[in-house]
Design a protein around this nucleic acid. Structure first.
Length: 769
DNA sequence: TTAAGTTAAGTTTTT
DNA sequence: CTTAACTTAA
């Protein structure tokens, strides 16, 4: 144990050997905070004989949790697996899977991701007659999410509206949204935290149980906690709790997700007598990189003063190159990586390309592909967001929780069962009228008015689904998934399609199958619900393994907590980074400080070499946009930068930067916007929350429900089965079958040349001959 | 009822 | 330039 502490510097040691009572560790970038946390855990167990079972360590990402777990395992050995190391969401998930009934939810609840939320919201808006073309689902969801981050439930939200029509409308949507989720026995990400807090508040015995269990709590990335998360920790820790939080206010970059920077700034006030330790020695970067980082971050006003220093040897200056276009920027970065690799300066796996928005990855990817450099893009479209994966997961979700209406809706007609939107709507109405779940309505299809022959199809679906459910009781997840694939003919259908796209999909399904297998292997108490929870909570970044020699591409947000020998920080332009939104924000000052922290995070990812780039023009939504170099570049003193020529000859960078900005001043994109007629659209969509301005639009009745051009079913047809008919395109053929499809006749014709076709009488315009 | 084809609209960051 | 919503055709 002694040698463990010896590898720590005095401040780190002080932090690691703090025993009882609250502690705040202000850990600068690269100051070895994970090492301190893991060493403290080892010290608590080894020296203070704390039971590993009494320790809880919370992180934000699964990757961070995994890394911490690994390091703890190495340090602690015996009993390390009874230490609870998890993210906020999986911690809450575990608690709720056990005690959700205390707040009226089933323990088999489903977790709704962003797509599911949008689906629910679309439905809610339809029910409340809200025109989603003007008032976006996203806007409502953002408002609801912000409320949940602050632990404001619908009733309270309504109370705070004070007659404001806009807030009342959001409150109504919020109420209906929450009701819908509850009915589906489903929670969104925010609910997981919020409902856990509610559970702990409403069920004293549950709170007591966990307080007893978690005698020692540690929280990583504390600067990113929101009010709900803070409340959760506060409840678990108790008044004089042994709570140790680690964070860096300069790296707080999740304000948009409700992160409350006051949680870290006011920690000592909330927990009087808290020990405060600062870790200011950086072990990651060269002095040149730290100087650059400090030069940028010192422009922020609301921060705890600290100065990062390092004993590392001096490295190369920060390189900056301005390019003419985003295209050239991508080419430059890729060429530079190739050259660095050629010189033996950096392996591909040492390089990371960081950017502000996911959209920027496309050009870079293209160039890397062209150059034959191995790469991996982190983030963007999640694996689990793909259609085929969602389809299959919805089968699993529905089996686990048949009340999950989003999942049920999705699978009811996959594969095609001839149950269309009209029939689903009838079943939905029936369910609402009789106050039963959608699935229960399906089981009583014969009682649904106007269902016609679709009732039989629904019965068939219910039988099919029940078979799967009963199998789920005896099969493991892997076997169940195989069964679903087999019985739905999902893969067979894709095989029949034969397109390259279909092949991709089959590969994705194979990947899902192996993910299931992996889950079963590493989870002792595997279950369907457990698998679904794990799947809902993993982010792309979590699956990142190092050492496979790939250049990594990711957003600055994804890069937090990681480090790379060679970092490319791209797209340093006004309007992109800092983002257009932050410049236009009503709290512009605050928003820009967050962007600056993001920039700081990006810079401090670099260990040896940092390369900054900007492009003068960039394609945005199909049109060229001209941007001045980022203000963050301005903030770096000239002498810290090694300004390089683009190698394209035309355009010099830094010397002309100031003049260019002055010249280009009138052409700055955001100013252009506000002086053009187009500006109206922007400000309209931006000010959706503005009181009264567009409020009436929300309340407006739907302009039309139906265009009244329903296809009229003919009283009789001029032909009957066995007749020869002529079709405009298919030529001549024989009618083999005429079925009454309720609204229209479905006619089957065997054509001489075009084969057998099914068509509707009103459209086919067949002529008897 | 469903699929294909056309048009309009939107863009930050994520558990 | 992509994606979602709408139209139209079978």
């Amino acid at each position: 144990m002694k040698n463990l502490l010896e590898e720590l510097n005095p401040m780190q040691r002080e932090a690691a050997t703090h025993f009882e009572g609250p502690q705040l560790i202000l850990a600068g970038a690269g100051s070895g905070k994970t090492r301190v946390l893991t060493n403290r855990i080892a010290w608590l167990i080894g020296e203070k004989h704390v039971d590993p079972w009494n320790i809880l360590a919370i992180t934000f990402t699964n990757k961070a949790a995994g890394e911490m777990r690994e390091r703890i395992d190495r340090l602690v050995g015996y009993g390390s697996d009874s230490i609870w190391v998890a993210t906020f969401h999986s911690t809450c998930g575990r608690i709720l899977r056990r005690f959700a009934e205390g707040i009226g939810y089933g323990t088999n609840f489903t977790i709704y991701d962003g797509d599911d939320q949008k689906t629910v919201m679309k439905d809610v808006c339809k029910r409340l007659n809200i025109e989603t073309r003007i008032y976006k689902e996203r806007m409502f969801l953002n408002a609801i999410s912000s409320a949940k981050d602050e632990l404001i439930w619908p009733e309270e939200y309504m109370k705070t509206a004070h007659g404001d029509p806009e807030m009342i409308r959001i409150g109504q949507v919020y109420t209906e949204y929450q009701r819908t989720l509850k009915k589906s026995n489903a929670m969104d990400f925010d609910d997981m935290i919020g409902l856990t807090v509610r559970l702990l508040k409403e069920c004293p015995d549950v709170l007591e149980y966990y307080r007893g269990r978690f005698a020692f709590i540690m929280v990583d990335e504390y600067q990113d906690t929101n009010t709900a998360q803070f409340e959760l920790i506060r409840l678990l820790a108790g008044r004089n709790g042994n709570l140790c939080v680690v964070g860096d206010d300069d790296q707080s970059i999740y304000r948009f997700r409700g992160a409350n920077i006051r949680n870290i700034l006011n920690f000592e006030k909330v927990f009087p007598g808290a020990a405060v330790v600062r870790l200011e020695q950086n072990y990651r970067s060269t002095p040149a990189i730290l100087d650059t980082a400090n030069a940028v971050i010192r422009n922020n006003r609301g921060r705890k003063k600290k100065t990062l220093w390092t004993a590392n040897p001096e490295g190369p200056k920060t390189i900056y190159t301005a390019l003419d276009s985003a295209y050239e920027e991508a080419e430059y970065v890729v060429r530079d990586i190739a050259q660095a690799a050629g010189r033996g300066e950096a392996a591909y796996g040492d390089c990371a390309i960081l950017y502000r928005t996911n959209a920027q990855s496309r050009l870079l990817e293209e160039k890397l592909l062209l150059a034959g450099i191995p790469y991996r893009i982190v983030g963007g479209i999640n694996f689990y967001a793909r259609k085929e994966i969602k389809d299959l997961l919805c089968y699993l979700k529905a089996i686990d929780n048949p009340e999950d209406e989003v999942a049920m809706h999705r699978i009811i007609n996959i594969p095609k069962r001839g149950i269309g939107a009209a029939s689903i709507l009838k079943a939905e109405t029936y369910a609402a009228v009789n106050e039963i779940s959608f699935y229960e309505a399906l089981t009583k299809s014969s009682q649904i008015p106007g269902m016609g022959r679709t009732a039989a199809k629904m019965d068939a679906f219910v039988t099919f689904f029940e078979t799967l459910r009963s199998k789920a009781r005896v099969l493991d997840v892997r076997a169940l998934l195989d069964e679903i694939l087999e019985k739905t003919g999902y893969i067979k259908e894709l095989e029949a399609e034969g397109t390259p796209e279909a092949k991709d999909r089959i590969e994705n399904i194979d990947e899902l199958v192996s993910k299931v297998a992996a889950y079963l292997e590493h989870t002792p108490e595997a279950s369907l619900g457990g698998f679904l929870q794990e799947v809902s909570l993993v982010a792309d970044i979590d699956t990142l393994e190092d050492g496979n020699g790939q250049v990594l591409l990711m957003t600055l947000h994804s890069a937090k907590g990681l480090e790379f020998p060679r970092v490319y920080l791209t797209g340093l332009e006004e309007g992109l980074f800092p983002s257009y939104q932050s410049i236009m924000d009503e709290n512009s000052e605050e928003a820009l400080e967050e962007e600056r922290r993001l920039c700081y995070v990006g810079i401090t990812r670099a260990m040896k070499t940092l390369i900054l780039t900007s492009a003068r023009s960039r394609m945005v939504n199909g049109s060229h946009r001209y941007n001045a170099p980022s203000r963050f570049l301005e903030e770096i003193p000239e002498e810290l930068l090694d300004v390089r020529d683009s190698g394209y000859g035309s355009y010099r960078s830094r010397g002309s930067r100031d003049s260019q900005r002055r010249d280009g001043h009138t052409a700055l994109p955001w100013e252009e916007r506000s002086s053009e007629g187009k500006a109206g659209n922007w400000s309209d969509s931006r000010s959706s929350f503005d009181r009264g301005k567009t409020g009436r639009k929300v309340l407006r009745e739907k302009p039309y429900l139906s265009k009244g051009k329903d296809v009229q079913k003919a009283d009789h047809l001029e032909y009957s089965e066995g007749d020869r008919v002529r079709h405009v395109r298919f030529g001549e053929g024989v009618v083999t079958k005429i079925a009454d499809g309720g609204r229209d006749y479905e006619v089957t014709v065997e054509f001489e040349k075009a084969g057998v076709r099914k068509m509707f009488a009103a459209f086919a315009k067949l002529q008897k001959i």
